[in-house]
Design a protein around this nucleic acid. Sequence first.
DNA 1: CGCAAGTTTGACGCTGCTCAATCACTGTGG
DNA 2: CCACAGTGATTGAGCAGCGTCAAACTTGCG
Lengths: 252, 252
Amino acid sequence: MSNPFIKKLSRFVVLGDEEVGALEHLSRNPRDFKGGHDLILEGAKPEYVFLLMEGWAYRYKHLKDGSRQILAYLLPGDLCDIHVFLLDEMDNSIGLLCDSKVVMIPAGEVLSVMDQFPKIERALWWATLVDEGTLREWLLNVGQRNAYQKLSHLFCELAVRMKAAGLVDDDGSFSLPVTQIELADTTGLTSVHVNRTLKRLRDEKMITIGSRRLHILDPERLAEVAGFSQEYLHVEGEPVEMKLRTRLGKVG
Amino acid sequence: MSNPFIKKLSRFVVLGDEEVGALEHLSRNPRDFKGGHDLILEGAKPEYVFLLMEGWAYRYKHLKDGSRQILAYLLPGDLCDIHVFLLDEMDNSIGLLCDSKVVMIPAGEVLSVMDQFPKIERALWWATLVDEGTLREWLLNVGQRNAYQKLSHLFCELAVRMKAAGLVDDDGSFSLPVTQIELADTTGLTSVHVNRTLKRLRDEKMITIGSRRLHILDPERLAEVAGFSQEYLHVEGEPVEMKLRTRLGKVG
DNA sequence: CGCAAGTTTGACGCTGCTCAATCACTGTGG
DNA sequence: CCACAGTGATTGAGCAGCGTCAAACTTGCG
């Protein structure tokens, strides 16, 4: 299963051949995009749903004073803006952090696949719920933790998600094409303070960071510092549909 | 239409008689709960979906050090924890801010209504997307704005939501059964600093606050200070389903 | 090689936190 | 009807985590 989209939805429902076929059809023809560019800007009329097949993207929003909040990182298999259906215009921008492969799916096509395959609709809904859970963790992170804990928590989360996407090396390191400025805009800090905090994490031998890679040297201690537990990401165990079947004695 | 749940879902889809009937059936028999109590605590096995019919609830989460982040306020018509389906156990708690009427819907019942009425399923999904958008605004708020702007933004949001629920008085004031401690845990500030910031907003004649009510005296200036614009709440205009039909030339 | 972008470090200051005391409000019981 | 307790609001004094400003250094790339 090399299609990260199908791999991801399989965490939620058990897909039949027809459904796999439909998803493969949806994700045919990814286009190559250069890193540093934006897929879509706040205010644009959304026509496509962007599906990331390879690379890194991020969702962000600007304030009038120029400050920026990064709202999510998007990894292979993630839909960038399924909430497009609601919007007359985009309420956030999506940028690419490195060269990436992206499928642009016309919004109507997503809708008709959902109409045809209720299971896919439900899987997409569940994916949305995971995104929401992640957002809640981010809010907790930004609202309540100090700089040291914030960065630790972010790194723990990214490690788990990258692992689930099969993108962590044997030595435990993974690509992190993110500048300290971006880490700052993610956590609500300044890049100067991020820099000092990274130095501390490095000095304490918990991480190695540089040349766009992160290596977590001491995962246990990092998770301890962050107060991290990975349940909210729902990357482990059998598909949600199966768990639900067991729990409620019925098919979702 | 006195049923706030139906009223809310009607913002997303045009409901037929059967669907209205099903929703009315779902929301029969609200139970009375006392304010200050919790509906469900983090770690509990979720069996019911809580539907708030009257009153105020909030979603929150604790850190081990005892600090708390409030993640959402729930108003009449809101489902408190539809994401229950995903969870083996609750990853957040839900508390009541005042005496409230709540329907406890068995999780399986929600599922079977969604199976029977795709439109309702889609409306619930859209409601989830609005929640997610709100969460993104909160993240922006907590991450990037200062205390003065944070509180202004929160008040603007609550005013719009209360208005949509038909709970704002003619004089523009509305019930806000929230202590300064809770405002602090919402915005990532301390109650002392919230107090000082409220004083400033009062001194500048933008709000009146007290005895569990908020009166916004100068909505324009408050929105200006906050950088608030209400689109993300999707309380205005025709139902999303209709807009979509116009936009895509097809039925969602 | 030389620029551009990002990282690192220092000095200093402010927003918002901590600690703590006092005040106001509301509901309770004698 | 009043004393009292508990909760929340208010205010002050002092402080620290993180921000600002600025300069130097490092890295990647055409």
